[in-house]
Design a protein around this nucleic acid. Structure first.
Lengths: 141, 141
DNA sequence: AATGGGGACTCCAGTCACTGGAAGGTCAAG
DNA sequence: CTTGACCTTCCAGTGACTGGAGTCCCCATT
């Protein structure tokens, strides 16, 4: 299989697949013409990576998860720890976004949105310190 | 005011303030010794930027919002449009994260997390195509 | 044999919003 | 005179790709 086939079958862009090789997540063989030559096993790995990424795991988590997947002697506790930690991060992000959302929604509703210059959104930004959203707090990435 | 004072009073790291100058969000004057010299107005702008960033607006949105803030002839509709669009983005992100969260939470609960290698999380990543989370779908940034 | 089109290859630069660090200048206190 | 806290610039790195340039390869058609 060439990269185009694998791209179609895994749903990952060819660019991404090359990138994954570059950072050592996969090691496809090469044909005589220099083209990457993928086996079913590579495709399987890429699909695994695609799904792990779709769940929001970082590339480094994906690397670890792939390693555990191929390690017969793994303990499911190792996998669970990674997943739980990630779940915690997701919860943090959701909380932060919901806090932003609440403030923003309030402001949007307060703004007339007409031709006049008066705007509670700008007034808020110019003055208020949104609680729990001070500049010290961590940002959602 | 030197950058340290402004940093303390705005809550923004000095590095960030220098960066904001570099990209033209602020234009502090300079003292004879080459130090940046901030006025109250600059501090006010920085606080504005910090709050807009805390609400998740992009830098370019912040630039526009700051411009509108200083434009007496603005229409509040312009501000509202930006805020509404941003609110929509936030809602999309929240929805995506909640979808991830649901799948992940389910998997975490299904995993024993003990010394044995059997792991539903890995099995899922290796086989299932999570609905609504296929690789084509946009990623949360 | 020439040509055209669709892949594939590498390499470099850009994204976003900072952040870290090196190497050096300035200033007030002890 | 030295110390240490500031300040300066400049360069590189982050994460996970993405875009684009320039070149090469393969197959089919003219």
């Amino acid at each position: 299989m060439n990269i185009g086939d694998v791209s179609r079958r895994s749903g990952l862009p060819a660019k991404t697949i090359r990138y994954y090789e570059e950072i050592g997540l996969i090691r496809p063989q090469r044909s005589e013409n220099g083209y990457r030559s993928f086996r079913e096993r590579d495709l399987h790995k890429l699909a695994f990576l695609g799904r792990a990424r779709a769940l929001g795991f970082t590339i480094e988590d994906c690397r670890t998860l792939l390693g555990l997947y191929e390690d017969e002697g793994r303990e499911s506790a190792q996998v669970k720890r990674i997943a739980e930690h990630h779940l915690g991060q997701i919860d943090d992000k959701i909380a932060q976004l919901q806090s932003m959302r609440a403030t923003l929604d309030h402001l949007v509703h307060a703004c007339a949105g007409d031709h006049r210059p008066d705007c509670p959104i700008l007034e808020d930004l110019a003055q208020k310190i949104p609680e729990g959203l001070s500049c010290e707090s961590e940002r959602v990435r």
